[in-house]
Amino acid sequence: MSAPVWGMVIDVDACTGCGACMAACGVENNIAPGSGMDWITLERRSNGRAFPDSDAAFLPRPCMHCANPPCVPVCPTGATRVSSLGGIVSQTTPQCIGCRSCVKACPYGVRRFNEREPVWPKGMDAAVTPFAAVRPKGVVEKCTFCVHRLIARGPEGYTTACAEACPTGAITFGDVSGISLGEDMFVILPQKGAKPRVAYVSWRSWLRGEK
């Protein structure tokens, strides 16, 4: 049996844009409240047509953990690399010098640079978890697919906080090594050649066509 390759399939038609994925990610990975440094965001896309022909959908946008990540070769310190843990693109903040080359290289805009120290209101630091370091000013951070869960508990039952909390089950996380893009499935910006491991599913042809 081959080693798993971790990825996500997101059912856009089941996403209501409630924000539970962002909240779950924030509390699990110590994203300072109100900092706007969310590792997963919700992008609202519309078909650009006027009412009543309009249509809109929400796209949850985590790091795509690309098979051919443009951010890795540009990192001068090796702070970001494709890890041996199922192809997860890691980010080692103590090695990051804050040059932001990876931010520029990422076609998906999912990397965040800490412009300032995170602010934790008095007493709220009790909610800091041991799962992710609190990133200081001057480093880049991004989604890790909650890799601490994989390290702690192994691949059995491994899932991310956002997939676990999603109230509609729109986010499915798991081994994507055997998945091929079907009729309704698409990835964002395939022309960039990054081979993202986060795929989307939707019946909306206008959404799939916007790749």
Partner: peptide
Amino acid sequence: SPPDLPHPP
């Protein structure tokens, strides 16, 4: 870590 950053339990 700078001293003002919280520490995990």
